[in-house]
């Protein structure tokens, strides 16, 4: 089993191995290489699933299962798209199937807000005396925001999560969702309109 990370002679810091060769090694069954791939993408995959489900436990299960399924399906990965896009598709499909099944059993289990949230000027402006619901704290705002997101259909929620929360481009989202850019744009516009109506009390 070959090592996934090469070390250069002149320094102790490992030279990053390109994703393509990691995928090649993982396809041969190299778990160390796959471990490196998991580490590279775990945060974004988990975050996408978490923002879609608003439940930490579900996101944990689905993220793990997505990586397991991806490893098992690596042999069928033709390389037509990047490994990252392919992995996203697996995670997104798994999440949407899961959400369809649990449709009427929504239970939020939200992650805590990090320390930086309280120091974000944009967020503080939202809970300042200028907003109609100025008594709303960050935690309440977080809950209302997640509840509003859960009211969107899965494709609309996914576009908002990938674009507005994760900052992905329309092109990348179109590849992940296997649709054209126009569809992504119109879904994003409609989803934002819905959210704005649902959260009007909290927006200036």
């Amino acid at each position: 089993m070959s090592a996934p990370v090469r070390r250069t002679d002149d320094s102790e810091t490992p030279a990053p191995v390109d994703e393509e060769s990691l995928v090649r090694q993982a396809r041969r069954g190299d778990l160390e290489a796959y471990d490196e791939l998991v580490r590279r993408h775990q945060e974004r995959i988990y975050a996408t699933i978490y923002h879609m489900t608003a439940n930490h436990e579900d996101a944990n299960d689905l993220a793990q299962e997505s990586f397991i399924k991806a490893f098992q399906a690596l042999k069928s990965f033709k390389g037509g798209s990047s490994f990252y896009t392919w992995l996203y598709r697996i995670a997104v499909n798994k999440t949407i199937n899961f959400l369809k099944q649990r449709k009427n059993r929504i239970h939020m289990s939200l992650d805590d807000l990090d320390f930086n949230a309280e120091h974000d000027p944009d967020l503080m402006a939202l809970i300042s005396d200028k907003t109609p619901r100025r008594e709303a704290g960050l935690a309440e705002l977080q809950e209302k925001l997640n509840a509003a997101l859960l009211k969107l259909s899965e494709p609309h929620r996914l576009v908002v999560v990938l674009h507005d929360v994760q900052g992905q481009s329309h092109e990348e989202i179109a590849k992940i969702m296997d649709c054209n850019i126009g569809t992504v744009r119109s879904r994003l516009f409609y989803a934002r309109q819905q959210l704005q109506a649902l959260l009007s009390d909290y927006l200036k």
């Binding site: 807000l113 402006a125 507005d164 934002r192 704005q196 927006l203």
Partner: peptide, 14 residues
């Protein structure tokens, strides 16, 4: 302002 509110989601961490 909606986009600014959605930034709050980035602060949710496991």
């Amino acid at each position: 302002s909606l986009c600014r509110l959605l930034v709050l989601k980035r602060h949710e961490t496991p």
